[in-house]
């Protein structure tokens, strides 16, 4: 694994420099912009993180998971339960760890499932957890909702920025590591990967659990902004489907595409929601349908094909 630190897998030496510059700019954002911009940006970061973490596993392996809401919700409940007991950064880590452990257990028992069975199982999982938590709250605690200790937007912003940077770096490096290669070969042919000596179960479970860590940590962070949660809020199935949509929208095959998909759709949703409150869903739906029908490679795919066309044109001219 030492190849990760040597840098020989970096295709472009400018990327780390520019990435750091972008992070620095993002870090300065709350100082120069008005408070609501910070809140908007935080929202964008959440969706980027859950999209990246979803696509990290489901993209290359083609195991379509719709359990993101389960891990996100576990993070939210961790925050609600532990928020008063420990400092905020620790709560966030704990949220991630709890989700990680859960994903590990789930992975151990189910990642031998394949295709549609796996997808349906992951959906069932988040529903199961939601109903379990609901039952627990009603029968054991005699309530349904909980308050979460509120944290100011600025610390939440920086926490999300840290999670975002870690997630992007992680996705970037894992895509270029032996693990990334293993994930892709599982996606292409699981049997072949197995015969080549890849411990497919270990790879799948580990990566699945790590992606759950990011979703859980994000949930823990966001719960402090929502201040009130109940099982249907925390385990809202929307959080399972949005990352899938966003990744497809932007271009499922690249980190860039996933980031663009998440950012554009989040900002678009915010804009439509406030500008066209009555037609918001309609417009949003039409845009999604158009992109999925006409741009199979997502927004990034469009960009690539434009570049290719331009290149062929310049070649023809010379």
């Amino acid at each position: 694994m030492n190849s990760l630190s040597t840098g020989k897998y970096l295709p472009n030496p400018r990327i780390p420099v520019l990435f750091s510059a972008a992070v620095l700019a993002a870090a300065l954002l709350p100082l120069i912009m008005d408070p609501f911009t910070t809140i908007s940006a935080t929202n964008v970061f959440i969706y980027i993180v859950i999209t990246l973490s979803w696509a990290l596993f489901s993209g290359p392996t083609q195991y379509i998971s719709i359990a993101t809401a389960a891990f996100f919700g576990i993070g939210i409940y961790t925050s609600a339960l532990a928020g008063e007991l420990m400092p905020f950064p620790l709560v966030v880590c704990l949220g991630g760890v709890v989700s990680f452990v859960l994903a590990l257990l789930v992975g151990l028992s189910t990642l031998r499932l394949k295709g549609m069975y796996f997808t349906i199982f992951t959906f069932g999982l988040s529903e199961l957890i939601r109903h379990f938590v609901l039952w627990w709250e009603v029968v054991m605690t005699g309530t349904v909702g909980r308050w979460v200790v509120s944290v100011d937007p600025i610390p939440v912003y920086y926490t999300m920025l840290v999670i975002l940077v870690v997630t992007i770096s992680f996705c970037f490096f894992i895509g270029r590591s032996r693990y990334g290669l293993a994930l892709r070969s599982i996606g292409q042919s699981e049997e072949a990967a197995d015969h080549m000596g890849i411990n497919i179960t270990a790879v799948k479970i580990n990566v699945f659990a790590i992606t759950a860590f990011f979703a859980g940590a994000t949930g823990s962070t966001m719960a402090t902004r929502w201040t009130y949660i109940d099982p249907s809020i925390a385990f809202n199935p929307l959080f399972s489907f949005m990352p899938v949509l966003m990744a497809i929208f932007g271009g499922i095959g690249s980190i860039t595409g996933q980031i663009i998909g998440a950012a554009v759709l989040t900002l678009l949703a915010d804009l439509l929601l406030t500008e066209f409150p009555y037609y918001y869903m309609l417009i949003y739906g039409i845009i999604l349908v158009v992109v999925i029908l006409f741009l199979p490679g997502g927004i990034v795919g469009l960009w690539d094909s434009m570049k290719k066309r331009r290149r062929t044109e310049t070649n023809e001219n010379t």
Binding site: I15, A22, D34, A263, V300, W303
Partner: peptide, 22 residues
């Protein structure tokens, strides 16, 4: 000169969007 459309462009675009937005 082809600029690679990569991570940094995304970040710049993202930040620009956020700044222009509100």
């Amino acid at each position: 000169v082809r600029t690679p459309f990569s991570l940094f462009t995304v970040f710049i675009a993202l930040l620009a969007l956020i700044v222009i937005f509100p």
